[in-house]
Nucleic acid binder design. Sequence first.
DNA 1: CTGAAAGCGCTTACAG
DNA 2: CTGAAAGCGCTTACAG
Lengths: 337, 337
Amino acid sequence: MKSTIKDVARMANVSISTVSRVLNNPDIVAKDKRDNILDAIKQLNYTPNALARGLIHKRTQTLGVLIPDISNLFYAELIKGMEDAAHQSGNNLIICNTDNNQDRKNSSFKVLSEKQIDGIVLTSEPVYPDSYEMFKQLGVPIVLAATHSLEYEIPSVKVNDELAAFDAAEYLIRRGHRQIGMISGSMLDPISGLPRIQGFLRALRAHGIDLDPEKCIEHGNYHFNDGYEAMKRLHKKFPGMTAVFATSDERAIGCISYLHENKIKVPDDISVIGFDNTRIAGMSFPKLTAVAQPLHEMGQFVIRKLDRLINGESLEELRTYMAHWIVERETVCDLKK
Amino acid sequence: MKSTIKDVARMANVSISTVSRVLNNPDIVAKDKRDNILDAIKQLNYTPNALARGLIHKRTQTLGVLIPDISNLFYAELIKGMEDAAHQSGNNLIICNTDNNQDRKNSSFKVLSEKQIDGIVLTSEPVYPDSYEMFKQLGVPIVLAATHSLEYEIPSVKVNDELAAFDAAEYLIRRGHRQIGMISGSMLDPISGLPRIQGFLRALRAHGIDLDPEKCIEHGNYHFNDGYEAMKRLHKKFPGMTAVFATSDERAIGCISYLHENKIKVPDDISVIGFDNTRIAGMSFPKLTAVAQPLHEMGQFVIRKLDRLINGESLEELRTYMAHWIVERETVCDLKK
DNA sequence: CTGAAAGCGCTTACAG
DNA sequence: CTGAAAGCGCTTACAG
């Protein structure tokens, strides 16, 4: 059985108040008693019960994290950053995989609320009015990771997706490409779908490239296969293409796989640029050039922001947009005339 | 502010005992009161405080998981399985990233103990005598994932590494290869190092292949770069090699990367087989043939086993060895004479 | 400097 | 069927 503060008090011949004091404010108790108590603690292998403490302090040092899919490298790297920062600030993370399933999301919210977590981080999803209601009822600080809300005043940390896409497209253009395709998420996705498409199209316009969005953009999900299939469709409808911007690393690698299979050389025939720069970007063949998001840092920043909120400190900024950059590897080359 | 059982009792004009009853044993309270209480609960958006409950029941429905590196796909997929099973059994997971750092491991143990988790899962590491002492002091059930202990009676779930390596090697041999190299972890790693080497060598012996371990085995860490570097060394010291067994997918892909760079064709010049069959195996070029571990199922099984232990149920078996298999893709071919 | 008491939000015998 | 009381393991004024 786990020993309690009573056991320690008994062994050290003091009241539990005194034991509690050496735990929380040691200097205030007489040295001899303190030493006895410390001794008893050691002997009994006593460790304070965080439930009892939490009940009193209304603080559990536990944070909830809602994630669509932990087995996705993007989230795995993000979580790693969160874990590191949480550990530094003495917090633990309860990670709830939601599988993008509303029921599971609701039940996670409920349990996290019951467990009296001090704060919560939501990833990727847009904030709809009804989720906003849930947040308010939770009654704890919340911060958004890899998403944001323009309608509500919710702290967030992400990259500027429109700009990142703009930069990716412009990078290709600077390398001489004009017939540029895009493999993107859904237009209906207001976070990482539409903004990236807008950034892409803005870059084309800025450089006087007149391409029909219907022709140069294909949509698909985030995974390898989605990239593969999207590239198949794109290649059919846009044969003149010399470069393609795929808005996730996996998609980009799926797209390269299609090109390999069809004996189309990367980057000689078609250049490819990805998005995220997760670890797999460095493992593909050829190695993927990609727009990088600082995933680990984003994760850390999110937790620091949340911690500040929990401690009642103010935020320097509500919505943080972290810098992205381009990691040049081997899948983009200058367009040969 | 969050409402408590008192608020509900006040609003419904009953004692808190009665409120507690409708929460835990609704049939026992009179219908009219019950309805009133249910109403009050809804209106106040009341949700019971799990800390208070945990204090009484000595059960938190929270499990601790110690993981060396969540950003590693192997663990990410394993955790996904754990999360799914935990959700099914009404548990939450507190995941502690240990970075293979002893201090961080110790502090995680301490916090998990304070938070009164109901059970804990340890991944990958061998169980040393002093860690065993820590386990006992924790006083909660523990199960090992992707590792096991032959010295101690600790439940575990993993694959049979020796046999899996044997099968991998034999698979290559059946395809006509005899000059087979291995890229392995350390001999000093009793879990996924030595046993795999033993399995590999046993297969060679079984088929009358006489190869000097010093010559055909190279060691390195788990990552892409380690695989790359190990392959460089291996290729130098074992030029006749026609196939190589790399004991992680990342290593295998790093090794393929080295071969690409040196214009050595995979699989025509050298066949490669990996280990784990994480999602990246299907994304490499060529697609990686690999020994598969049922990571998701392992994760689920670990949690189910832990849950059973927590509920005082008995286990059918202490050490579970799950079946592995080989996923044939594109990196192994028959040896041409 | 230290102890007794109240209280955090619940559950569960014990009476009635 | 229901309420008052004790108790889970702590912390924190309040006295002394």
